[in-house]
Design a protein around this nucleic acid. Sequence first.
DNA 1: GTCTATAAGATGATAGAC
DNA 2: GTCTATCATCTTATAGAC
Lengths: 232, 232
Amino acid sequence: MQQPNRDKTGRRGRPVRRPAVVPVETRSHILDHAEALFALHGLHGVTVREVARAAAVDPALVHYYFETKAGLFDAVFQRRAAILNEERLREMDGYARAAGDRITVEGCVQAFLEPIWRHSYPNDPHWNNYFRMIALVNNTPEWGGEMMTRHFDPVIQRLIELLRTCMPRARDADLYWCYHFLSGALTLSLSRTGRIDRLSGGVCASDDMEAILRRMVPFIAAGFRQVCQPAD
Amino acid sequence: MQQPNRDKTGRRGRPVRRPAVVPVETRSHILDHAEALFALHGLHGVTVREVARAAAVDPALVHYYFETKAGLFDAVFQRRAAILNEERLREMDGYARAAGDRITVEGCVQAFLEPIWRHSYPNDPHWNNYFRMIALVNNTPEWGGEMMTRHFDPVIQRLIELLRTCMPRARDADLYWCYHFLSGALTLSLSRTGRIDRLSGGVCASDDMEAILRRMVPFIAAGFRQVCQPAD
DNA sequence: GTCTATAAGATGATAGAC
DNA sequence: GTCTATCATCTTATAGAC
């Protein structure tokens, strides 16, 4: 599998001591490949060796950087969560400021989703892998709830807050349950399993993120209003 | 699957051949415990030995009945799908017949969900495990789409058909995408991860299926109408 | 930081006795 | 149908050389 003592230059004497070409990126290089594999197979469906092989790196290095497989998984999850959270908060704050009194449920949902779509559409493979991971985690009974809470709660709370200003008479339970429906619809979309392609006989495509967003915003907004703002 | 040589009467002549006390149930006994484990950890998170130990059965027996781990997973998935599909078809047909011209989007969605809720609420641990498995499969990129299609498509097509009679001018793509949102919201609910409990500070409970249904039906119905029946 | 080597044990699956 | 025994392979993780 490995050729122990290769020396491309073939020049004799000292082993030259070049710490490879770009050692700076090793860590994120491992993260990228781990992300791609975890997205497809989940935590238990991936071995440290597979990650190492995909990243063309020694298995021991993975442990050097992340200690355990769970540590690796967590690091992968953490990396883009930080970025995404910041973008979403800024997007929602920006929208709220710009909209002022004209704030709408549609606008809030759109601002909440916008940063995701910016990364996923048309096609950033890294982010798309990450989003698949989120979908898997979100539906994992054992530790999924805890993990989602730990990484995303502040952003969700901000969304709820914003939605409350649109629907001042809404009850908390209704707002949270409706967010839960949004969360399910969103993460299933992000997992792009190809199910809808088969079901629809090709009329819909899992990868058509634009088609999804165009319908998700009005769908979710109408649902929120129906439940949180009953006609009474 | 088959019990070749059973002889309940024990009448003489032949060596009686009573294979233990209750051999009839071994297969479904294994299925039950596999179901509980797969629901929590997914296909890759469970070993054949763990299933065998949980079922208090020899590991080789699992292979005897199901050949491979994937075969076991599939058998678990199959078992209740057959039951559920039949119940859902009957529920939807019954509703459509009873409603006649007064058919509504709410009614269709309710009929579609009703059989699930009958099993999950208040508490049938077996069915609840099964529903968690569905949620996991539904969000599994690799083979999840294929598996959902294989087991559930006819029922979904029937739902779409019914919804089309409520919204005759709806376009297919809109109907399918809206079903996709429904599917995501539903399966996330079925996975009961505890996320919403944490997020809401205890205002909502993952296990409160009645609270979910009460909101899901109007939420989803309003979404469908908004997207599939634009005011134009 | 990166690699070799290896510990220490678990894995899916099967052959064959009963 | 059920069990014992076992194969061949893979697993996470670490110690220590370089």
